[in-house]
Simulated scan of single mutants.
Amino acid sequence: MPKIRRVFYSFHYADIFRVNHIRKAGQFRPVDKQRLPTPQDRSLWEEAKLKNPGALKGMIDKGLEGTSATCVLAGYETWNRPWVRYEIAKSVARGNGLLAVYINNCNCPRSGYSLKGPNPLDQMAIGYDAQMRPRIYEWFNGTWRIFLRLGAPLASWPKWVPIAPQGQVMQLSHGARAYDWIADNGAHNLLHWTHDAAVAAGR
């Protein structure tokens, strides 16, 4: 039986109606003894997205406290949202397990279904800087650059991410799984996915 993890959900605010398929999954259907409980939700609610940058950064950091896994809910444009990238980078820095869950097949009451966007974990990577310190990198304008918003280098290379060859970076998607909420039966399996991600990170 997997352990119920405290989970931080990272998402683009424009996807809030699709996000609620996941965040309120336990309320959308009758009690089903075959369906495992939804992981405890430690995500920020939508009003947090309206704060100024300094306040939002602090709220993200606080929201991540006590969590062992971060679930990136991937819509069409999630991959290029700067605060999603910060949430991913900060999650890696604090040792959380990571996973991505595509939500484009969740029906939005306003716009229906969506096209599938890129995996946000393809757009973030780890590599060594000139001083041979592990750093988070982001894909920007056709090249990899250090993700400066995080600030300090990582304390160590995460155990769940393969070591990059010298002079290269390793995308986070090489060590983190991606799922589809609908096709992979997320309502039943999310507990397994988040547990597996946390275990892979040593949490």
Rank of each mutant, 00 (worst) to 15 (best):
Y128I: 04
A55H: 09
G112Y: 11
G186Y: 03
L172N: 06
S91Y: 05
N52G: 09
L121V: 06
K51S: 13
T143I: 04
A100S: 15
L44S: 02
L99D: 03
V72D: 00
H174C: 13
Y13C: 04
V169Y: 07
G202A: 09
G175P: 09
N107S: 05
P158C: 08
S91D: 06
G95W: 00
R29F: 15
A25K: 04
K116E: 12
N52F: 08
F17E: 14
A89H: 03
F8K: 03
A164W: 06
W181D: 00
S173L: 09
R23H: 08
A69N: 03
W79I: 01
G151T: 09
A69D: 03
V169N: 08
A48W: 06
A178T: 14
G75D: 00
L191K: 01
D129I: 05
P162R: 11
W139S: 11
T78C: 05
S114Y: 09
S173D: 10
A74H: 02
Y179E: 05
S43G: 15
I60W: 02
M1I: 11
N107Q: 11
P134V: 08
V169Q: 06
E87W: 06
L56Y: 13
W193F: 09
M59Y: 10
G142D: 07
R35P: 01
L36N: 12
